[in-house]
C-alpha cells in the first residue's frame, strides 16, 4: 500500500499572487520558510489549521489549494 499524499498548488498560487516569496507566505501564516518549502515539496502535511491559514491567504477554499491523493483507493471506472 503506497503512502497517501497531500498535494498542493501553493507554488503556482504564489506565482499568481505577484510572485509572493516563500518567506512572505511564511510570515503571513506564522511558520518558518523551511516549513513552507517542505509543504510545497509534499514532504510535510500541514495541520488543518495551517492549511486553512494558507488557503485564506490566497482567498480560496481549502480544496483549491490542497488535494488528497491515496493510491490505495480503487479508482472509479465506467
Amino acid at each position: 500500500m503506497s503512502k497517501p499524499r497531500i498535494r498542493n498548488t501553493i507554488r503556482k498560487l504564489r506565482f499568481d499572487h505577484d510572485e509572493m516569496t516563500q518567506q512572505a507566505l511564511a510570515d503571513k501564516v506564522g511558520v518558518t520558510r523551511q516549513t513552507i518549502v517542505a509543504i510545497e515539496n509534499a514532504k510535510y502535511s500541514p495541520s488543518l489549521e495551517l492549511a486553512f491559514r494558507i488557503a485564506r491567504v490566497f482567498n480560496l477554499p481549502l480544496e483549491s489549494v490542497f488535494t488528497f491523493e491515496d493510491d490505495s483507493q480503487p479508482t472509479d471506472k465506467p
Binding site: 506564522g30 516549513t35 510535510y44
Partner: peptide, 9 residues
Amino acid sequence: EPAITDERD
C-alpha cells in the same frame, strides 16, 4: 535564527 518555533519544529 528563526524567531518562531512552528508546528513542524
